[in-house]
Design a binder for these strands. Structure first.
Lengths: 180, 180
DNA sequence: CACTTCATGTAACCTGTTACATGATTCT
DNA sequence: AGAATCATGTAACAGGTTACATGAAGTG
């Protein structure tokens, strides 16, 4: 039951924004680091319980009367800072099912890979628009974390644009040139 | 013990290159799709056993006298083709510990995020060189799969370059400009 | 003969997802 | 009153990693 690892620190970090219920925590995660992080309730609640057991988080009934409000303790903040100082794990199992299907694409029906790539492009385009919004939103908010938050959004933008460029390049290269 | 999912298809796909031992399978995976896929022995051998149980793979003692040679059966090839036709799972939990540390960077000691970024840049630079080699290698080999293989390498190159650009941009933005 | 590489497998564990179960507020 | 939202949690399972255990065949 002792859930550990990065989820713990994602939670501790989010609580630097202020006390929150588990539910709000998940909403906040989705709205800020949702483009590169994700937490499910099945992970979140046990993690909060474990963090509280370890004294890194304290909880009490929320002033709103609804749910439990979780606060970062000084020990929790220390744990966060210790973790921040450590080099991130040079991950990772970057497994891409799309690339796997491209790699074995010769064995698929003609047009299959192209269809997958076009769907991928659609998803990327949506994601790109979301990131543009998010970028504007962060740029307009003069929070102390602004530069850091913007950096993560810019990362998403750089990678999404690169992936879009690759998609176009690949679609062009896989489509045999037809003379007019 | 019935391991399933994408690992199965990565294995089936790899066996289109010819019969192989489990050991060779892993080497081949590392050498071809290693930049976006990974299999551990603990996953590979049970998967091979399951695939054989299901009639998608057949095995016999290798002609070299060493190990078991696994061959794709017609049913296995059909299974691969069926899987190829399906839209790839719109993943995924793209979790980045580096980005998490950047996002919460304000709470770290000054210079910490910069240090992480520089290490990241080092890893990317290495990866970039590897991909350049791989690209040349694939470009020189007139295999029937060439265009597809090249596409996956190009993906790696696009993303690595984008990540490198982001790293530089972010390092510049986090370093306060010092007047001369 | 010792060392490395090729080779196969199992067991324990960790991390995380999905589905289920439940219920209190607030809004319409 | 009914629906949507806020809220918390558990249980089962899936998928994968790490470490362990073992040994044969080739290389220096």
């Amino acid at each position: 039951m002792a859930r550990s690892s990065t989820t713990r620190y994602a939670v501790l970090g989010m609580l630097t924004l202020g006390p929150m219920t588990g539910y709000a925590l998940r909403e906040t995660i989705a709205g800020t680091i949702g483009h590169f992080w994700h937490e499910s309730f099945g992970q979140l609640y046990p993690t909060l319980a474990a963090l509280e057991r370890d004294g890194l988080v304290a909880s009490r009934a929320a002033r709103t009367g609804r749910g439990r409000e979780h606060t970062l303790t000084p020990a929790g903040y220390d744990a966060l800072r210790t973790w921040l100082a450590q080099a991130p794990a040079t991950s990772s199992s970057h497994r891409s099912e799309l690339l796997l299907k491209v790699f074995f694409g010769r064995h698929a029906e003609p047009g299959t890979v192209e269809r997958h790539l076009e769907m991928h492009r659609g998803a990327l385009t949506e994601s790109r628009a979301y990131l543009a919004d998010l970028e504007a939103q962060v740029a307009d908010d003069p929070a102390p974390d602004q530069a850091y938050w913007l950096a993560t959004v810019r990362h998403g933008i750089h990678l999404t644009d690169a992936s879009l460029a690759w998609t176009s390049e690949t679609l062009a290269s896989l489509t045999p040139e037809t003379a007019p």
